[in-house]
Amino acid sequence: MRKDAWWIQPLFVFSVFTAFVVYSTWAAFQGAFYWHENLLSPFYSPEIWGASEHALWQRTGTPGWWPGFLPYSPAFLILWAPVSFRLTCYYYRGAYYKAYWPGPPSCSVGVPREAYIGERKFPLIVQNLHRYALPFALLLLVFLTIDAWNSFRFDAAGGGKEFGLSVGSFVLTLNVVFLSAYTFGCHSLRHLVGGGMDVLSGRPVRRKAYECVSCLNARHMAFAWTSLLWVAFSDIYVRLCAMDVWTNVRFF
């Protein structure tokens, strides 16, 4: 039996994941305080159908096609994309198998059960379709980049927009940077851009793409955590600004 404090890591993963899932679920159900002036919470981006000025279709109330017995929030229309991407992510799989299943809770600690099917049969065989969540995660980055750009554009006194800088600009820009570093380091993307081939010499574009993705992939765990925590903080920041608890300080 290992004599070191092996339980710290799975306990940390369990605690942070659980806290994130609880908070993000609560935030998604709120359907309010998710934007403040030129800031939009990443949990609600893109706001496909909603009341804010950031919405692609700016409407109040619930879409007509939405089942009446279900509560509605703009977050429900998009959160499935990042959830499915992270849930099937190769890094997160290893981490949450250890923290929740646990199989095993940590290396050379022992598994508290005998039966094991791995990812060969349902339900975990579905994990093999991680690559199908990738395009949606990439598409979200486009919208989050637009949100970050909008966070630098403020209403001008004489009408129109003017360039400015606030704390929120930093928050949303860092959010898209961390999420991009995580998404572009995806193992499936690494395979698709070149890892699936044995010969990359003579294919300069593929080779460069493979090198770039591999570089980020080597730090996939770090970016997975950084982006997870920062996206939650971004929502908290926008939410507290919208609730007038915090003030989005503008530098110019």
Partner: peptide, 10 residues
């Protein structure tokens, strides 16, 4: 049986 690997990275 590569599908049995569940990526613990141990």
């Amino acid at each position: 049986g590569i599908g049995y690997c569940n990526i613990t990275k141990c």
